[in-house]
């Protein structure tokens, strides 16, 4: 049975109606119109649906919506706001350093999987600010990109790690 649930997404409390076992992904996309996370497999194999749950990267296609009640959900749309704005120059939009690095390195082809790489990298670099290239590769090994944008993505994540260390 559909029930009313209150979930905290990108700093705002939302009341949604869904059965408790509905994967969070469908609630975000269809109820809250947050379209950053994408459906890729529904099996937690590709990462296209990644969001942050209390700051940790999780795959929203397998997280029941009821499991996020009382926790903080962040989507790609809200990622920048989780990062201090001190570095943002006034004439630039406020982007998370990972997003900024992805723009600078042109790190996408079709961009369908991009959400997963950005959200996973942001969580990973927060936990591992001094990660080596080998550790970054390992940390991102669970993500898929079908177009083969890996080289530019790797450059972008390394650039973001460097930029974040400078701050």
């Amino acid at each position: 049975m559909a029930t009313q649930l209150e979930i905290l997404v990108n700093g705002k409390l939302h009341r949604v109606e869904a059965t408790p076992d509905t994967p969070l992904l469908y609630v975000l996309r269809n109820e809250l119109n947050l379209l950053g996370p994408h459906f890729g497999c529904g099996l937690a194999q590709c990462g296209a649906c990644t969001v942050h749950l209390d700051g940790a990267a999780v795959r929203s296609c397998v997280v029941p919506v009821s499991a996020v009640v009382g926790k903080r959900v962040t989507t790609l749309e809200g990622l920048a706001d989780t990062y201090p704005a001190s570095i943002a120059k006034t004439d630039e939009p406020h982007l998370h350093p990972v997003q900024k690095a992805f723009v600078q390195e042109q790190a996408a082809q079709c961009g369908y999987c991009t959400n997963g790489w950005i959200m996973t990298s942001a969580a990973f670099l927060k936990e591992n600010p001094k990660a080596s290239e080998a550790e970054i590769r390992e940390g991102l090994s669970g993500l898929k990109c079908r177009c083969g944008s890996h080289m530019s993505i790797l450059r972008a994540v390394k650039r973001a790690a460097h930029d974040m260390a400078q701050e």
Partner: peptide, 19 residues
């Protein structure tokens, strides 16, 4: 030239078929 579709793709603002 930098690709015009890239910035929107990085912030979840690019409109895909699925959207």
């Amino acid at each position: 030239v930098a690709r015009m579709d890239i910035p929107a793709k990085m912030v979840g603002a690019y409109s895909f078929m699925v959207d």
